[in-house]
Write a protein that binds this DNA or RNA. Structure first.
Lengths: 219, 219, 219, 219
DNA sequence: TATGAATGAGATTTCATTCAT
DNA sequence: CATGAATGAAATCTCATTCAT
C-alpha cells in the first residue's frame, strides 16, 4: 500500500516548513491538551514545556484556538485517510477477502493508529463536543464520507451473503460500537490493565461475525 | 420497584434542605458545564444563568470544583443505584427471565436514564479523564462494583447455557459496547436524527444475543 | 436657567449609583487619556492612579474602549445640552437680544465650559478621528442637531438685518472658527500665556460682528 | 519661484538615497499613522502594508518613534518653508499687493498644501500634543518663526492702513482661525461634502477683510 | 442567607525590537 | 540590505474567591 504513505505525507507536508520551535510547540500542546483538556491548559504551560517564549506560540498560531485546530484538523484528516486510498474497495472487496479478514484488517489497523496517535485522538474526542465548528466539520467532512464508504462495503458483504440484511446505518453502528468499544477500553480507559490483544481482537471479531451472521436465522 | 424510588430519594435527600437559589445554581451549573465543559465555564456565567449573585455560589460550594463534585457524585451514585436494589438478582435471574428479556430491560432502563440525565452524564464522561480523584473514585466505587454485579449475572446466564463461555470481562465489554454505542449515538451524537427506538433496541438485542449465542458453535 | 441644571443632572444621573472606586477610575482615565491619548494609556496606569486593582476597571467597563466611550458620550451630550434648554430660542432671540449680546453670551458660556471640562474635551477632539463609531455618532447626534439650531438663529439675525445674507453653513463656519480658534488657543495651545480674557473676547466679538456686518456693503 | 523648489528639495534630499523599500515604509507609515494614530499603529501593520519584513523597518529607523519623527520633522519644515523664500517680503508686501490678494494667495497656497499633504498634517496635529519634544520643537522652530514673519506682515498692512490696529497676536489669531477653520472643515472634517471652493475662499477672505477693516470704525 | 464590589493572580494576546541567516 | 523567527515585557482581559454590608 504505497498510496497510504503518500496520503499521510500529504497531510503532513506543511510540517516540512515548520521551524524546530513550532514543532516543539505542537508536540507540547498535544501532550498537555490531551492530559488536561483545551480549556484546562494555559499557553504559558505549553510554552514552558516546549522550551519557547510565550510570544512564539502566537507568532505561529494566531490564537490558542488556532493551535487546537491545527492539531485536530490533521487528526480528522488522518482518521479518514485509509478510506480514500486508491484501489481501496478493489482490494478489500475482492472475492478472496472475507468479512472476517476485513474486520481483522480494520481492527488491527485502527489499533495501530490509536496506539500511535493516542493523544491527538483523545483531544479530538474530548473537544469536539465543545466546539460547534469542529462538530460541523466533523459531521460534514468525516462522518458523512466515512459513512458513504462503509455503506458500500456493507452492501457488498450483504450481497455476498456474509452479512444479515440490516439497514447499513444499523450495521455500521453495531460494528463500530464493538470496535471502538474495544479500542477505547484498551487504550483510553484501561491502558494499564494487561490485555491479550490478539485474543481480544479475535473475540471482538467473532462477536461481530456471529452478531451479524446470516446463519443465525437458520439455527 | 418501589425500592428504586427509595434509593434515588436517598441520593437526593440533601436536595430537600436546599434553598431555591441553591437549586437554581445546580441546574445552571449542570446545563453550562455540559455545554462548555468545567474549565470552559465561569462561575459568573453560572451565577447569571441561575439568577443569583456571584458570591452566592460560594456560600453553598466552597470552590468551583466543589460545585462540580456535587454534580458528579450523585450522578455516579445514580448510575450504580439500579444494581443495588433489594431482590435485584432474585428478580432478574429468576428462571423466567431470559437473557433477551434481561437485555431488553437493561437497555430500556438505561435509555430512560440517559434521556433524563443527559447533561449530568455528559459532564461525568467529559470530566472524569481530567480529574484524578474522580477517576479513582469512579473506578473504585463504580466500575468495580458494577463489574462484580455484572459478573454474577454473566456467570448465571453462562450456567443457564444462554451465553457462550467467554471470560466475563470480555463478555461485559462486548455487551456494554453495544448498549453504550447505541445510547451514545442515540442521545449524544445524533440526537436529532430520526430514530425508530423500538426497532433499534431490538436490533441491538439480537446483535448481542447472536454475538454471544451458544448455538453459534453448532451452526 | 434652572433647566440647564436639570439637563446636566440628567446626563450625570448614572454617576449617582457609581461606586467611589468607579468615580476614581473615571477621573484617572480622563486625566491620563487627555495627557497621553487613548492608545498611549495603559489600563494598569489608570488603575494605579485611581488606586484600584486593574480588575476593578473591567468590572465596571467591559473593555478599555468602553471606558473611553463612557467618557466621550456624556461629553458629547453636554456639548449639545445648552442648545436644548427649554425656551432657548425664546430668550436668545428676543428683540432685546442683539447679535453682539448673543455672541458674548455664547463665547463666555463655552469658555467656562471649556475651562471646566478641558480634559474631556481634549479627549473628544483627539479620539474622534480614530474611531469610526464615534465619528458617526458625533455627526449624527451632535453636528446635525447643533447645525439645525444654529441655522434657526442665523436666520433670525439675518431677518433682523444684523447679519449679512450668507448661506447659514458658511456663516456658522466663520463664527465657529473664530470662537473655537479663540477657545482652542486660549485653553489648549497656549494656556500658560497671559491672556486678557475680557479684551480678547471683545476683539473676537467685534471681528465676527464686522466680518458679518450688513453695513459692510454700505461702506 | 525657483527658490521654493530649492527649499523643498533640501527638505527631501535624504529621500534621494532612500531604497524603494524605505520609501514604501514611509508611505505606509504615513497612511496608517494618519488613520489610527501613532500609538494605535503597530510596526507589523506598517511592514505588511509596505510589503517588507518587520525587521526591515528597524534597519532604517532605530525605533518606531524615529519613524514618526522622520515623518513629522519634514512636515514641520515644509510648513514653514514658504515663509523663508528669498524675497518673500519683497514680493508680498510690494505696494501692488493688497491685503486681499495676500490673503487669497495664502489661503490658496495653504489649501493646495493641505490637499497634498493631508495625512502628514493630520499626523502632525494629532501627535504634537502627546510628545513633549515635538511640542517644544514646534513652538520654538515653527510657531515663533512663523509668528515673527507674520508680525512683520501685519505691521506692514496696519501701516498701509489696510488693517485695524489690533495687537499682532490677536490679529494673527483671528486670521489664522478663519483660514484654518476653513481648511480643517474642508479637508479634515467634511471632505466629502460638496464645497464650492472658490466661493468659500472668497467668503472667508471677505469675512477677514471686513472683520479687520479700518473702515469699520467709520461706519 | 444573599449580595455584588473588589481583588490579584494569571490567562491570552500584542508588539517593538533583536539577531542569525 | 533584507528577512522573519524569536523574544520577553507589557497590555488587555478573565476569573475564582473574599468580604463588608
Amino acid at each position: 500500500m504505497p498510496e497510504k504513505e503518500d496520503i499521510f505525507e500529504m497531510l503532513f507536508e506543511n510540517q516540512e516548513n515548520m521551524t524546530e520551535k513550532q514543532k516543539k510547540i505542537l508536540e507540547a500542546a498535544v501532550e498537555i491538551f490531551s492530559e488536561k483538556g483545551y480549556s484546562g491548559t494555559s499557553t504559558s504551560e505549553i510554552a514552558k514545556k516546549a522550551g519557547v517564549a510565550e510570544g512564539t506560540i502566537f507568532r505561529h498560531y494566531k490564537t490558542k484556538k488556532d493551535l487546537l485546530l491545527s492539531i485536530i484538523a490533521p487528526t480528522m484528516a488522518k482518521f479518514m485517510a485509509p478510506l480514500f486510498i486508491r484501489d481501496f474497495n478493489k482490494v478489500l472487496l475482492s472475492e478472496h477477502q472475507s468479512l472476517e479478514d476485513f474486520l481483522r484488517a480494520v481492527i488491527i489497523n485502527r489499533m495501530e493508529y490509536a496506539k500511535k496517535h493516542l493523544p491527538s485522538i483523545k483531544i479530538l474526542i474530548q473537544e469536539i463536543p465543545f466546539h460547534a465548528e469542529l462538530r460541523g466539520q466533523f459531521k460534514e467532512h468525516v462522518m458523512n464520507k466515512v459513512y458513504e464508504r462503509l455503506k458500500v462495503i456493507v452492501d457488498a458483504y450483504q450481497k455476498k451473503g456474509e452479512m444479515i440484511q440490516l439497514p447499513p446505518p444499523s450495521a455500521i453502528r453495531l460494528i463500530a460500537s464493538s470496535i471502538l468499544g474495544f479500542v477505547i477500553g484498551r487504550y483510553l480507559m484501561f491502558p494499564e490493565a494487561d490485555w491479550d490483544d490478539e485474543l481480544e481482537v479475535e473475540r471482538t471479531i467473532q462477536f461481530i461475525l456471529h452478531g451479524l451472521s446470516v446463519k443465525q436465522e437458520e439455527c
